[in-house]
Amino acid sequence: MLIVDSLSKTYADGTQALSNIGLSAAPGEIVALIGGSGCGKTTLLRLIAGLDRGSAGAVAVDGETILEPHPRVGVVFQEPRLLPWLTVADNVGFGLGGLGRSENRARVTEALERVGLAEHGRRWPRELSGGQQQRVAIARAFVPRPRVLLLDEPFSALDAFTRRGLHEQLLDLWAASKPTILIVTHDVGEAVTLADRVVVMRPKPGRLEETVAIDLPRPRDPVSARYEEAVRRVMAALDRSLHPPIARRDPAPEMRAGWW
């Protein structure tokens, strides 16, 4: 269970990046965070990961307050961030410790198989394509079996074809251990394909604007009417967050009443 309670972040120069974020995600739930650039998606993820501290409010995972990186929280960054001096298999096993060699190896092998890179364990990261590298990064994040997994636009640098394959592999890995997943994306299709719930954020300061529930069974068919309808609902919510009503700044009572 992930709980974000009235979380705010103000930088030293006075810029308010996040304002009063409240969010909770159940075990096994996949939540997508979507919004225009500069709305604090990445900042929020970094706070939940414990990489940065909030100015006010708190983050808790399974009842434990997060102040620094936590063994139950895994992260996949926008870039693969593989360690170039380790083989693919050693990268996947990087976060494992204290399990014993055979257990480590079994987990690494299993994760590499699930992302379709079983043959590549002994290669160097530089020998893999961008999509393959990101699959290694995802395998690395899953291997310690985190309860919460944070993904920061993990597929944004990849082409649409590669991205679709990665969605399937991500869901496959997720199905095996059912962690809570919080994924930042700017791709509406990606959000609808993966998430149980899409949370739309609005910038300046970053805050949660609206939540769209995606009640579709998995695997999801991207050409079905219900899928398209969900995409339209998320699009509409995103539109509302990107084009705020002008009247808001100086709300005359009659305008406020008649706006929607």
């Binding site: 990489l51 620094e68 990186p69 063994p71 992260v75 960054f77 310690p144």
Partner: peptide
Amino acid sequence: KLVEVGRIYRLSRLAMARR
């Protein structure tokens, strides 16, 4: 960014230096 990977996996100062 690579140092941050070390932080995510909670490496000690010594482990961060070595790994």
